[in-house]
């Protein structure tokens, strides 16, 4: 006897049975995918938390440094010094905070070090005193600057004026002046990468500043790195003339001209011999 209602129920059950394997497979796949995503998210979060825990001390120091009180800032800096375990005082810098800008000035010791590093043919007068350009009575904060390999950490120690909001960007005015200040940055970069272009620039700069002994030195360094730079030989020879070593300048130029047949060098030689260039 045909019981259609019963058959309909059985048919429903049959259809559910048919779909069950697909439902199971879909559910299993979903669980697996969610587990994988959750697992990778956890790993990412753990890595992130490890990175954050490495920086807490420095962040705290930056906050402390933002205080105006000099004594507090000195304490902080000494703490930083202890933390970084550095005793190289020659690397100290003075950081002066002004309202809207701050200017980094190298210390005198750093300058001395540069002079001793370079091979000198003439004595350099190291009696130049560098005065920090303090425009206002702001707290002078010293921070320890490590050698170039740890330069990244220096950036962390940069100080902001507490009055300035964190979201505001600090405006750095770069003023182009014919002072030694501009050269020191270039010298610093040259010490890192030993680029002849930089040493040539320094030599030219010193020549402009009429510091012929230093221009001579840096021209010599450039020639040692790369002896095919015409401009370096020109500055070198000019510096020699200015240092009252005309004969040496002529001899150098002649040798260079024999080697390179440079027209510029020939012109300069003629000028030196004729007395047009003094």
């Amino acid at each position: 006897m045909l019981n259609v209602n019963d058959l309909e129920l059985k048919h429903k059950r049959y259809k559910q049975k048919l779909r069950m394997p697909y439902i199971i497979i879909f559910t299993s796949l979903s669980i697996i995918i969610i587990s994988i995503v959750f697992f990778y998210n956890n790993i990412y979060l753990i890595k992130k938390s490890i990175l954050i825990t490495e920086k807490p001390i420095l962040v705290n120091k930056v906050k402390k440094i933002n205080k105006v009180d000099i004594n507090d800032t000195k304490k902080v800096i000494t703490n930083v010094l202890e933390h970084k375990k550095t005793t190289d005082t020659s690397q100290q810098k003075e950081i002066i905070i002004e309202n809207d800008k701050f200017i980094l000035l190298p210390s005198f010791n750093f300058l001395k070090k540069i002079q001793t590093d370079t091979s000198l043919y003439y004595k350099v007068n190291n009696n130049i005193e560098k005065k920090p350009t303090i425009k206002k009575e702001q707290p002078i904060i010293k921070t320890v600057v490590k050698k170039p390999k740890i330069e990244l950490q220096k950036e962390v120690v940069t100080i902001k004026n507490p009055e300035i909001e964190i979201e505001k960007k600090t405006i750095i005015n770069i003023e182009k002046r014919d002072t030694n200040d501009d050269i020191y940055h270039v010298i610093k970069r040259f010490k890192v990468n030993n680029s002849p272009a930089l040493s040539l620039f320094i030599a030219k700069k010193y020549y402009q500043l009429q510091e012929y002994d230093k221009s001579y030195n840096y021209a010599l360094i450039t020639n040692k790195i790369n002896n095919n730079i015409e401009a370096s030989w020109i500055i070198f020879s000019k510096s020699l003339v200015k240092l009252n070593k005309k004969d040496m300048a002529i001899k150098t130029l002649q040798e260079y001209i024999n080697h390179s047949h440079s027209s510029q060098a020939r012109l300069l030689l003629d000028e030196i011999i004729s007395g047009k260039f003094k």
Binding site: L7, H11, Y14
Partner: peptide
């Protein structure tokens, strides 16, 4: 198709 499947269940061709 539903009626075919119902018939198959009744005749034993489908084990529901």
């Amino acid at each position: 198709n539903k009626i075919i499947e119902m018939s198959a269940i009744h005749t034993g061709l489908i084990d529901a």
